[in-house]
């Protein structure tokens, strides 16, 4: 008779939840790529596949009262934050049941309930928004954290440097999270940065900084918890550089001439989902059957999201000019 597997510990249950979140992002986006080819999704589509550990790890350290400001590669950030997969998929379909009524699309995902302030397609342009949200919290005496995600490309923008300086100068509760996937679109870090150790830049602004393995969700979560505690404790901003890698092309129009297949394959060996599931298996906290069940639950969740988007409706063209200005007169 087979030995009864040990009950997972509280920690292991938490890690299994993290694994499930990463798997949901992965499978959701794989479907997005298919739906793009099927012309259900249009515009730009930037996939997060490979980078799931970053947003899943960071979001695990945040609470619902905190605010998140995201990038244009933000499906993973949105799902990890708890944005409904159906509303997200419907948004990419351009349906009015989408989280932004189809006004934003893939690059502009917003959600009030989870304090998810977008999806921003101007690289670096959303960083000051997080600093402003943090300023509002500080001025109103609220102990909340504003977390902004941005890529290594944004570190070359003035918005990053101006924001780091002001957030530090005013001791604002901001968590700066750099998803360093080594390429600003197709320009390698070594071709765009004089100092490629991005975490080192925090010192110039007296911002507590740390670089972490962005392919290891537990390492990301641990570093993020430490940073969030410090930020929430009123010690000013923190900067977390998560060293990660995007497995797919930059967008659906990218021939990937700027990197080798060998490099991509090398990074795939560090797949955050494979790493965590292997670790949980080794700990006997996750049986093959458990993982298969997780896969089928996630597949159903993605299918439900697609069905929701398919069943969605088109906003009447008569509504085109709504939401240019607020419909209520006073703010």
């Amino acid at each position: 008779m087979k030995k009864k597997p040990p009950q997972p510990t509280t920690d292991q249950e938490h890690w299994i939840r993290l694994l499930r979140q990463m798997l949901l992002i992965r499978r959701f986006e794989e479907k997005c790529a298919e739906l793009y080819s099927a012309t259900k999704i249009r515009g730009f589509l930037h996939l997060y596949i490979g980078e799931e550990a970053v947003s899943v790890g960071v979001m695990a350290a945040l609470t619902p009262v905190d605010a998140v400001v995201a990038t244009y590669r933000e499906h993973g950030q949105a799902l990890a934050r708890g944005v409904s997969p159906g509303a997200l998929m419907a948004e990419m379909y351009g349906k009015q049941e989408g989280c932004c009524r189809g006004r934003g699309g893939s690059m502009h995902i917003f959600d009030a309930a989870t304090r998810f302030y977008g999806g921003n397609a101007i690289v670096g342009g959303s960083i000051p928004l997080a600093v402003g949200l943090a300023l509002a919290d500080k001025m109103q005496g609220r102990q909340r954290v504003s977390c902004c995600f941005f890529g290594d490309g944004a570190v070359a923008e003035g918005a990053f440097h101006e924001s780091m300086n002001i957030a530090s100068l005013w001791k604002l509760p901001v968590l700066f999270v750099c998803e360093n996937n080594l390429y600003a679109m197709g320009s390698a870090l070594r071709y765009t940065q004089a100092v490629t150790d991005l975490a080192a830049k925090g010192a110039g602004y007296a911002v507590q900084s740390e670089a972490v393995d962005g392919m290891d969700v537990l390492a990301v979560e641990s570093a993020a918890r430490k940073a969030v505690d410090s930020v929430r404790g009123g010690n000013g901003p923190c900067f977390l550089e998560c060293r990660t890698y995007r497995f797919r092309a930059h967008s659906m129009f990218d021939a990937e001439l700027y990197r080798t297949k060998e490099e991509v394959e090398e990074w795939k060996k560090r797949d955050p989902i494979l790493q965590l599931s292997a670790s949980l298996r080794a700990q006997e906290a996750l049986a093959d059957a458990d993982f298969e069940q997780m896969e089928s639950e996630v597949a159903r969740e993605v299918d439900d999201a697609i069905a929701f988007a398919e069943a969605g409706t088109w906003e009447p063209v008569d509504d085109l000019t709504r939401f240019v200005y607020s419909e209520r007169r006073t703010g």
Binding site: A67, V69, Y117, G125, I127, P128, L129, A130, V131, G132, L133, A134, L135, A136, D137, M139, Q140, S146, G158, A159, E162, S163, N165, I166
Partner: peptide, 14 residues
């Protein structure tokens, strides 16, 4: 750039 963006964020923050 930053302080205008911070104004936007602060406005959204109440």
């Amino acid at each position: 750039l930053a302080f205008t963006g911070i104004g936007i964020g602060a406005a959204m923050g109440g």
